[in-house]
Each structure stands twice: as structure tokens, then as C-alpha cells.
Simulated scan of single mutants.
Amino acid sequence: MNPLQLVKMANQISDFFSADCSEEEAAAEIASHLQRFWAPAMRQRLAQAVEQGEAAELRPAACLAVQKMSFPAEQH
């Protein structure tokens, strides 16, 4: 999936959760939402985009959410 589209969607989620709480609380809610509703490949691709500097437009709370998520080690 296109990382720019994932960033756009993550930012929309961030805007929703950031409206009424602190950045830390919003990040926890965003991470929970992503883990419940996004496919693992989407979460992995967003994390990869953050890691590779392809997600400069990602809101701070969403970026923090990505950092909070744990990803299983890659199978070789």
C-alpha cells in the first residue's frame, strides 16, 4: 500500500483522537485503533515509512503511536 495514503489515514485517526486528550493519551488510542482495525501489512508498511523517512507529514501523536506498537520479528 502507498505510504502516503497510510499517512493520510493515520493522520485522520490522529485528528479524531487528539481533539480531546493529551498527545500521549491520543498515541495510545491511535495505536489501539491501528492494531484493531488495520491489517498487519498496513501497520508494518506505516512503521517502515516512518523508519525510512517517508512519513514526514505524519502527525506527532500518530508517529508516537507507531513507535508504541510492537511488531513480530520477520520470518526468514
Rank of each mutant, 00 (worst) to 15 (best):
M1H: 14
L4D: 15
A31N: 05
Q52C: 12
A26N: 06
L64G: 05
D20P: 08
V50D: 02
L46C: 06
E23N: 12
C63V: 00
E54G: 09
P72N: 09
K8D: 06
S18E: 02
L6D: 01
S14D: 15
L58W: 03
M69Q: 15
A10P: 05
A10R: 08
L34K: 02
E54P: 01
A41V: 00
N2R: 08
M1K: 14
L46G: 10
D20G: 14
S18Y: 02
E23Y: 10
K8L: 13
P72K: 14
E74W: 15
L6E: 05
E51D: 08
A62Q: 03
N2H: 09
P60W: 01
A19N: 02
W38I: 01
F16S: 13
R43C: 11
I30G: 15
H33E: 05
Q44Y: 12
E29P: 00
S14E: 05
N11K: 13
L64K: 09
A73L: 10
M9E: 06
V7I: 14
A61V: 09
C21T: 11
E24V: 15
E24K: 15
Q48Y: 09
C63D: 07
F17V: 10
N11I: 00
A47K: 11
E54N: 01
F16K: 10
R36E: 02
E74Q: 15
M42L: 07
Q35Y: 05
C63S: 08
R43V: 08
Q5W: 13
S70W: 07
H33I: 06
F71L: 03
A62V: 00
F71V: 00
D20H: 14
N2I: 04
P40W: 09
A47F: 12
A73M: 06
R36N: 10
I13D: 15
E57W: 01
V7H: 08
M42S: 04
P72T: 04
V50N: 11
H33F: 14
M9Q: 10
C21N: 07
A55Q: 11
E57T: 02
Q52T: 03
Q44F: 12
M69L: 14
A27E: 00
A55N: 06
L46T: 01
S14L: 03
A10I: 00
E51A: 11
L4C: 04
E29G: 13
S70Q: 10
A49W: 00
F17A: 15
C21P: 01
A19T: 00
A65D: 08
P3C: 07
A39Y: 05
E25I: 11
Q12R: 07
R45D: 03
P40L: 14
Q48G: 08
A19S: 06
H33K: 07
C21M: 12
S18D: 00
C63L: 06
S14A: 14
S22Y: 04
S22W: 03
M1L: 12
L64E: 03
E74K: 12
N2T: 04
E29D: 14
V66T: 12
A10T: 01
P72Q: 07
H33C: 08
V50H: 10
L34H: 02
F71E: 02
E54F: 01
C63I: 00
R43I: 07
R36C: 10
M69G: 11
M69N: 13
Q12K: 14
G53R: 03
A26I: 04
H33W: 08
M1R: 13
Q75W: 01
K68H: 06
R59P: 06
N11A: 06
W38G: 04
V7L: 11
H76Y: 09
E24I: 11
R45S: 11
V66K: 12
Q52P: 02
